[in-house]
Nucleic acid binder design. Structure first.
Lengths: 204, 204
DNA sequence: AATAATTTTAATCATTTGTTTAAAATTATT
DNA sequence: AATAATTTTAAACAAATGATTAAAATTATT
């Protein structure tokens, strides 16, 4: 089963699982060791400390969360509508596989804001300098004239509608009495719906 | 200044502040004591234990988060559009005063799912039995015919667009290079915009 | 004013938790 | 096969942390 996976990898996988669910402060090294099925001392043997291990998990999580959107958003050869589709599809894939990625990242940022100032691989005012931002602005001027809302609203709306159902998953399942299968199906419906809604908003 | 506030209240206020920022696991009773400017032992004197104090803060937080929507959503005398406006206005007021309320609640649920099964004061399939859900369904049938999306999508979209900018606040500020004032203004613009966007979606 | 009740404090305790150590077991090298 | 290097283990350590205690300080009651 996990015969071809090294101890080092087993530890990181276990750490990822527990860190993403419980956060840094809520995770005990003993829980990671147990989840990985290894002796507690091996965690420090391979990764020096809980914090070092956490930093690796966090770095990979930030990459999972932001690497794809960074390239899509600045692609000059695709138009606005294709970008919207791409973002939705890419995030849906990522988040269906890692449902608690967003809550993990944002929770850690909220508990330790200063620590993440540098770590997030997105420069100040990243968004306003992207291709998609400019394409959005042109489109808004075209249909709404000069007096249109800040284009950032529409990017936020896009991300909101994609990410929030994952952040609020337990609540959402409860509220609508869905089991896991219903929930996944519900999310998957949004893959086609969200781009339509956003396109509708832009041309409002 | 806080001469008319009791020690007991000072402790709870300090606890609320730190619990909401750091979560249960990330909060040390010593931090609460320091924030409240009291001796550590007084925390246990007034509240027995960290967990008891946390439960009080969490209960009040859940109430802040869900009490208003529970009444709005089942009001028979208002129509759909008025309900949408009310929800947006109410949440904007609550969240501008308590920006990290949503991340706190959802983070704690994610780290400890079973503990919250009962605590959330919303029964199974609460949403589908509300007045707003039925009003939404009627409206969707009116404009889209029988083959319309699940009405839950629109409630989720509404909540997404309201709540997500608070959950992702540090990221959003960073991405768009906004200071606190710009951020608040940006959020306030959404008070009028979100209802328009949702109404647009329904009539798509 | 004297006494009792309540509140606050400093010190300490007991447990949890991240980490280390030294020896044992295993694997690789000569 | 003998030796060296690496990996794993059990045990223990040290610091952090939630909680308690007993005395001191303050406030309320008689």
């Amino acid at each position: 089963m996990d015969k071809d996976i090294t101890t080092e990898e087993k530890i990181k996988e276990a750490a990822r699982k527990i860190f993403l669910q419980k956060g840094y402060a809520g995770t005990r090294t003993r829980d990671i060791a147990e989840e990985a099925g290894i002796n507690l001392a091996l965690l420090n043997y391979y990764y020096r400390s809980k914090e070092k291990l956490f930093e690796i998990v966090m770095e990979e999580s930030l990459f999972q969360m932001f690497s794809c959107i960074k390239s899509i958003v600045n692609e000059p050869s695709s138009n606005l509508m294709d970008k919207l589709d791409s973002i939705v599809n890419n995030y849906m894939d990522i988040l269906l596989k890692n449902p608690n990625l967003p809550l993990f990242i944002m929770g850690e940022i909220q508990s330790n804001p200063d620590k993440f100032r540098k770590k997030i691989g997105l420069s100040d005012s990243f968004l306003t300098h992207t291709v998609i931002y400019k394409q959005l602005q042109e489109q808004l001027e075209l249909t709404n004239g000069q007096n249109h809302p800040n284009p950032a609203h529409f990017i936020i709306n896009l991300l909101s509608m994609i990410v929030f159902p994952f952040v609020a998953k337990p609540l959402l399942k409860r509220l609508t009495d869905m089991d896991e299968q219903n929930y996944v199906d519900f999310i998957k419906e949004r893959r086609v719906l969200i781009p339509l809604w956003i396109k509708g908003m832009i041309n409002l």
